[in-house]
């Protein structure tokens, strides 16, 4: 059986270094299988998050050969076997131990977002073509790989001012819900710092669910913010239109 060498980061907030482990490679094996092999045979205290092992829960994110991936969906046979495979924790989040990072910041951002609020007296009917685009956003499994690669967070550390792609996707899902009656544009502009995104599409590239984050969520939301706050004519038109609209319940 072929053998692979893994170079896995071992350490904590205080520091650490990669440690090499040799792992036999079986047919169809994924990186998470290799990590479990190391746990069982060589390092029982190797810290790894995982749950479903089927790409549905978004727990096992890491950087494999420098690329942010779900380790449960990364096949060993897609990686070059002639050199060590490096496995590091997500860089944009503080390390807790080994491959486990502190992602609690995401949960704090999520709390700022006002939930779905149906328009008053709404009839509970929706048509598939009207919800297709929202269902795309709701495929998000919260692996936080998009947050990890977003340079506003990763390189510039703007966690205080910026919500990150994951939460633009969440807000897009609410804003474009056909029965939602709330506007979240000022939240996007002021608290989630949507303007800081300069649409490099790094988030879209790493999304394991294939959500077109930049094109379908971020750009339309940016347009909404522009319309709302920076287009005086549209602003006036909307103000007049909204005068007759029912308020959210």
């Amino acid at each position: 059986m072929a053998e692979a060498v893994l170079r896995i980061f071992r350490g904590t907030r205080e520091g650490g270094e990669p440690v090499e482990y040799r792992v036999p490679v079986a047919t169809g094996m994924v990186v998470l299988d290799a990590l479990h092999y190391v746990q069982k045979h060589q390092a029982p205290d190797l810290a790894v998050r995982w749950n479903c092992k089927a790409g549905k829960c978004g727990s096992c994110s890491a950087e494999v050969n420098g690329r942010p991936r779900l380790t449960c969906k990364t096949r060993m046979d897609t990686l070059p076997q002639d050199k060590p495979i490096t496995i590091f924790p997500m860089k944009a989040f503080p390390v807790i131990k080994d491959l486990v990072t502190d992602v609690s910041w995401n949960y704090k951002v999520n709390k700022k977002i006002p939930p779905f609020q149906p328009r008053k007296g709404v009839e509970w009917k929706m048509y598939q073509p009207d919800i297709d685009r929202v269902q795309e956003f709701r495929k998000c499994i919260e692996c936080f790989l998009c947050q990890n690669v977003c340079h506003v967070l990763r390189d510039h550390g703007k966690q205080e001012e910026f919500g990150g792609p994951r939460f633009f996707v969440r807000v897009a899902g609410l804003e474009m819900h056909p029965l939602d009656g709330l506007s979240r544009t000022s939240l996007l502009k002021d608290e989630l710092g949507l303007g800081l995104c300069n649409i490099t599409k790094c988030c879209t590239e790493v999304c394991p669910e294939g959500i077109r984050i930049t094109d379908n969520a971020i750009i339309p939301l940016k347009e909404r913010v522009v319309d709302e706050f920076y287009d005086p004519l549209l602003r006036l038109v909307r103000k007049i239109r909204n005068a007759g609209k029912p308020a959210p319940e």
Partner: peptide, 8 residues
């Protein structure tokens, strides 16, 4: 290992 995130 230690008591920190120790799956074993």
């Amino acid at each position: 290992g230690s008591r920190m995130f120790n799956p074993g």
